[in-house]
């Protein structure tokens, strides 16, 4: 039976997503792609830190005052965030938003593209006291989330694309598809099965300072890969160009240049690549999660 390939590219979550789906029936591929895209868009509506109508925004507005009931899958996401926060020694911290704001990275990039502004030490010190996911209180039995520290704000940008891809993959598998590659922003990939006549999907990782050069080529099958780098929004401070990933321990842009992680889910890969970059001791970090 002939194998069809269907590609879909679209913009969501302030980045570019692309699906490559393989199967015998082009009609089925097209319909499944629509359903998977709907999952990405729904995740965007749910987790956007910039939309006043998102569920995350409601949590940020109200969880400092009272426990807020959230759907089970959002609670599970918070559990994942807290686990990676603990296991990474606080390097992955979705409550880092006040620090990003202090450094000028929090503006909606689609409305104010370009660089942030360097921050003063006093402002950073003040904002650091509001940061730390240890203040995130989860009650799985009641299905609620509460902030134990005033001013805590969550920004799930370090894990959101991965969550969206995992949910899109669930929709594709529900539709009976077994061979596809999805990516968000060319930085988070999720692969199932393989392309025709190949053992796995092959993803190239670009060198952080020489985009023309491929640093490594990774084979993916039923696995996710996330690359975090300092590209995108930057600031110029003391003659150095610094990226937008904040190291919570120092309260300043991270020194790492690139972190590459493979994991069984795109959400875990995303969270860990952010953690590795934020707390990096070396320019390039690698990690393979279970």
């Amino acid at each position: 039976m002939a194998t069809e390939t269907h590609r879909l590219a679209f913009r969501a979550m302030r980045t570019d997503f692309e699906f490559v789906l393989c199967g015998a029936d082009s009609r089925r591929l097209r319909v499944a792609a629509e359903e998977a895209r709907a999952e990405i868009e729904a995740t965007d509506r749910e987790l956007s830190a910039f939309s006043l109508g998102s569920l995350l925004n409601k949590v940020n507005r109200e969880a400092g005052e009272r426990p807020v009931k959230v759907p089970g899958r959002l609670l599970e996401l918070f559990v994942l965030c807290r686990r990676v926060y603990r296991d990474s020694g606080g390097a992955f911290d979705p409550s880092v938003a006040p620090l990003m704001e202090a450094w000028g990275f929090r503006e909606d990039p689609e409305r104010t593209p370009g660089a942030g502004t360097s921050s003063d030490a006093a402002s950073v010190a003040e904002q650091r006291s509001a940061v730390g996911l240890d203040a995130l209180e989860l009650d799985p039995a009641a299905g609620t989330v509460r902030f134990r520290r005033p001013g805590l704000q969550l920004d799930l940008g370090g894990v959101g694309k991965g969550v969206a891809l995992d949910r899109a993959a669930e929709a594709l598998r529900d539709a009976g598809l077994g061979h596809f590659l999805l990516h968000g922003g060319s930085s988070t990939f999720l692969a199932f099965g393989a392309p025709p006549h190949q053992p796995a999907w092959r993803v190239g990782v670009r060198h952080p300072r020489d985009p023309e050069r491929v640093l490594a080529s990774v084979e993916l099958r039923d696995r996710a890969l996330s690359v975090s780098g300092q590209h995108g929004r930057t600031i110029l401070a003391d003659g150095a160009r610094l990226g937008h990933v904040i190291d919570p321990a120092r309260g300043a842009p991270a020194a790492g240049e690139l972190a590459v992680v493979t994991a069984s889910t795109a959400a875990a890969a995303d969270a860990w690549s952010t953690a590795l970059l934020a707390g990096a001791a070396a320019p390039v970090s690698w990690k393979a999660c279970a």
Binding site: P71, G72, R73, G143, R167, E170, A171, D174
Partner: peptide
Amino acid sequence: LRSGGRRAKD
């Protein structure tokens, strides 16, 4: 029903 259940786990 299964995909709806992922949104309303309880």
